[in-house]
Design a protein around this nucleic acid. Structure first.
Lengths: 235, 235
DNA sequence: GCGCCAGTTATTGGATCCAATCCAGCAAGC
DNA sequence: GCTTGCTGGATTGGATCCAATAACTGGCGC
């Protein structure tokens, strides 16, 4: 059971991003505090934090509601992530990779290769691929050692949908292209070619955003159901 | 007198950024709430927000202290701002400037020209120049219409020092170069040359960071005293 | 029948209260 | 003399209480 305000905000954030708590939903303090088993005081601190993060909307004397994200919001986050993760590549290349980071990246490439080696994609493969993807990006961001990059990229994932970086890429070709990007990025980084790594990463993330956009443009309804995109309001 | 939690956090943020409350200082809830004329409950919400923003450090059962920023932290913020404001230029160029934005930028150029026309710089000119500088950058960021850019750039200014974008540039040549950048950026934007505007803005902000770095490297003590850089811990 | 007004209820906002934790100072033992 | 353990004070953390504001319902008038 959550007790401190940060634990409460972490829990609520998760529920919002997962779609368990839906956009537009009102968060009433008393019922919520009872269901969480805490009093209103720490809950209110948590709500203030989430509002500050942009996940909730606050109106004085009217309370908190879950914010709705438009497709434009989501794409805006991808634009920013593309630049920030590119910067991360540049910084990481300039600093030089630690052997640990180098190892993680190499491992990620191998894991991806293995998953994609059959030439088709099982639904069961999505989870492991997703995990690998997260580790790959996180390793680079960590290597950049820039507090603001780390923070802001995390905040970019505080948009429903973006938190699961891959789950609209059910297409084998799309994932393959993405993984090829990874390979090239890892290569450029280990050669300390910051410029190239930057360029590749920027396009890599931007591409993901475009795929998402097109996925949503066509066949919206099915995907909503399939991937529980409850938390995204598409205009 | 501040009453709501956001007003309290705004007030405290200002005091921290201005150096009135110094880094490392402990913020005790009871004395602080008394001096602010509010009770501890809204104050605690405000402290939670500021902690989430990275301005305070929180340790359970030990309370809140003002975070110390290293020179590296400040430079990290400049790196990020350089990329984000460059992105803003790209987005603004793609969208096309509104006539209002165009007018603001043109006006900023004229105001800067006037300030710099004498070939020297009065201490009295710093205030107006600073104001103009802020308006210039804000106009572009607004024109970009990307929620995350807006938010994150603001957060980048939540680093003591960076909140006053100019005040180490007491040098005429430095300000002149900066203003020439502005002119070229405005030009590129009105021609919808996003690429060029991006490049120029990135270098413009990066340059500011470098100037700051060098200013601090040499003659640190005097500047600390002169500009009340209390809130920055330089390592 | 529809809309406006008033009283009631529910919810938020701020203050206070009590328990739990931490820190400082002191004392006793090694 | 130094370290270690205890105790009292202070501070934080969570719960509760009361006031203020807003939404809701019912009644009244048009």
């Amino acid at each position: 059971m959550a007790t401190s305000s940060t634990e409460i905000s972490d829990l609520l954030r998760e529920r919002i991003l997962s779609g368990e708590i839906r956009p537009g939903e009102r968060l009433q303090q008393i019922p919520l505090s009872e269901s969480l088993g805490v009093s209103r005081t720490p809950l209110r601190e948590a709500l203030a934090i989430l509002t500050n993060e942009g996940l909730l909307i606050y109106e004085p004397n009217r309370g908190y509601t879950v914010r709705s994200f438009s497709l434009d919001d989501v794409l805006a986050a991808f634009d920013v992530r593309a630049r920030l993760e590119a910067l991360a590549c540049g910084l990481a290349a300039r600093r030089g990779l630690s052997s640990a980071t180098r190892r993680v990246l190499a491992e990620c490439v191998v894991r991806g290769d293995r998953i994609l080696s059959r030439g088709t994609l099982d639904p069961n493969d999505l989870g492991p691929y997703r995990q690998m993807n997260v580790e790959f990006h996180d390793a680079i961001i960590q290597a950049a050692n820039n507090r603001y990059v780390t923070d802001f990229v995390r905040q970019c994932h505080n948009v429903p949908l973006a938190s699961d970086r891959i789950f609209v890429w059910e297409d084998y070709e799309v994932i393959k292209r993405s993984h090829d990007d990874h390979r090239r990025i890892a290569e450029a980084l280990s050669e300390r070619d910051g410029e190239r790594a930057e360029y590749l990463m920027r396009e890599h993330v931007y591409f993901a955003g475009q795929v998402l956009k097109h996925s949503l443009d066509q066949g919206l309804q099915q995907k909503r159901a399939k991937f529980n995109m409850a938390a995204v309001e598409v205009l």
